[in-house]
Design a binder for these strands. Structure first.
Lengths: 128, 128
DNA sequence: TCGAAAATTGACTTTTACGTAAAAGCCGTG
DNA sequence: CACGGCTTTTACGTAAAAGTCAATTTTCGA
């Protein structure tokens, strides 16, 4: 486990641009430490980037990703805050489960389309 | 099963604007029939709208949704075309399975965050 | 048949999520 | 020491996906 990663190391690892990483920083999603003016990304920053990209992949906006990240942060001390956080987590879970249903439905439609193609090919005497 | 739906019926059902439906039409995603200049959406158009919104929900761009819609269409007659279509279907399935993994990972992280909150509350003597 | 409500087109605007370009600082190598 | 490579900030640009507004039709129910 490395101590720090440079910005280009992360861009190469994740296939994104430096602009994207700086943008996420501007948006308050990540806060790499600095040596002088140069950004140094810790393993925890790297992990956060991975999570951000996962969120992006499944169609969350930056604002929504920010909300999810808030939730990842260490739980606060106060009871009210904890309960509020639990509520927010539940909401995000609902969002994700809905997305999962949408995803499964789309996969099923694709499977049907696939089957139709295979059948049509069979009719034409082609073995897949 | 109704014959036709008006544009506002669909906007209400799906919680989108008329502009959005017309935009999808401009983009060639749906082609409702017309009575005069008025759009009439068939059940198949309605179903297509549902699919479009599902695609949008899970982070596909209009261009990607268009590709998926191409795939839904009745399989063509020619063998080469059919094989090409099968290849495109496989590609979309890969995309979706990756998204599903990202989604599951995010759900797991949320479950961990939830557990941390519950434990912290338990330490404070609060029963959830 | 008349008038409100709904639908149309077209143009312009907005938001999100970066891209791109300019100008300059740091740093190891030959 | 200058060179290439990586990094920085600042600033403007842009594509996608609609939102908004205006000016007209069109439709439909009383």
């Amino acid at each position: 486990m490395r101590d720090y990663y440079s910005i280009t190391e992360l861009t190469r690892e994740f296939g994104i641009s430096t602009r994207t990483l700086r943008f996420y920083e501007d948006e308050g999603l990540i806060k790499p430490v600095r040596r002088g003016r140069t950004r140094l990304y810790r393993p925890s920053d790297r992990h956060l980037v991975r999570q951000i990209l996962r969120g992006r992949s499944i169609g969350f906006s930056i604002a929504e990703i920010r909300e999810i990240i808030e939730v990842y942060k260490a739980p606060p001390g106060e009871i009210g805050q904890l309960k509020l956080m639990l509520a927010r987590i539940s909401e995000k879970q609902r969002d994700l489960r809905q997305k999962r249903r949408d995803l499964e439905d789309t996969l099923e439609e694709l499977a049907r389309a696939e089957e139709a193609c295979v059948e049509r090919l069979a009719e034409l005497g082609v073995t897949t």
